[in-house]
Design a protein around this nucleic acid. Structure first.
Lengths: 126, 126
DNA sequence: GTGGCTGCAAAATGTTTGCACGGAT
DNA sequence: ATCCGTGCAAACATTTTGCAGCCAC
């Protein structure tokens, strides 16, 4: 049975209100402004619980800390190899990849993540 | 100018000889058997240099340590969410995704990685 | 009242770095 | 002779965990 604590609500709200893709530490610092007693461990615990419950999404980013996304609907991401900027891609999720791979591998495929890498407009001008 | 040291050759060879997708620590332990003085820091340094030079590939794995791949040709991976098993997928690399995303985002897209997740045959039977 | 959740500190994990020395060029 | 790469240890970054008390149920 899962309890509905103040801390979990704060974590959830902070992720929802973030326009970008915050790291655990960014969430922690945001919440601390209004609720200075919260602990980083609690932030991590709740981010993981919320991700388990599919209320937020956990994204694994190459060469940096995990990020969290308020958008639960599957979608893709792009990372600038120069400045680290990290953004959504607005293409349609390709369900058919999952079924194709399921046939080829005899895995029970649940999902896939795509991370594109390249130079963002600003960095490519330099 | 890059020097050709024994240690770098050992790291390169260890990655090539590995059938799977070893972590830095696995490479380190393999090499230590024949060359006990090698340091983990040296293994990390050389793995990163080799990946920079595109002699091996570095793969970011959700919720676990980075892995290294002797296959330089771009291809996709799948991870079992239950036992952590990690394998190649033998589909064709979809170049057209990179150009499509380049058009949509005005990034200079270099590449993309896909990691599928699901249950491997063994785990799905349980 | 109970047991899941918290804060804190410590530990665990994964990776990088400062430094003096040694070896490849 | 140069100076890049090494081993070592320490630092660093990120995330998890043990524990005693607390609070939502």
């Amino acid at each position: 049975m899962r309890r509905n604590t103040i801390q979990r609500q704060l974590v959830y709200t902070a992720v929802q209100n973030s326009k970008s893709h915050p790291t655990a530490d960014e969430i922690y610092n945001t919440i601390k402004e209004s609720y200075p007693d919260i602990s980083l461990a609690t932030v991590y615990r709740n981010l993981n619980l919320l991700a388990q419950d599919s209320e937020i999404r956990k994204i694994s980013v190459p060469d940096s800390a995990d990020r969290f996304d308020h958008t639960v609907k599957p979608h893709y991401h792009i990372k600038c190899t120069c400045c680290g900027r990290f953004e959504d891609i607005v293409t349609r999720y390709m369900d058919q990849l999952d079924s194709a791979v399921a046939e080829d591998t005899s895995y029970l495929v649940e999902s896939h993540d795509i991370v594109f890498q390249g130079l963002c407009p600003r960095c490519s001008r330099a």
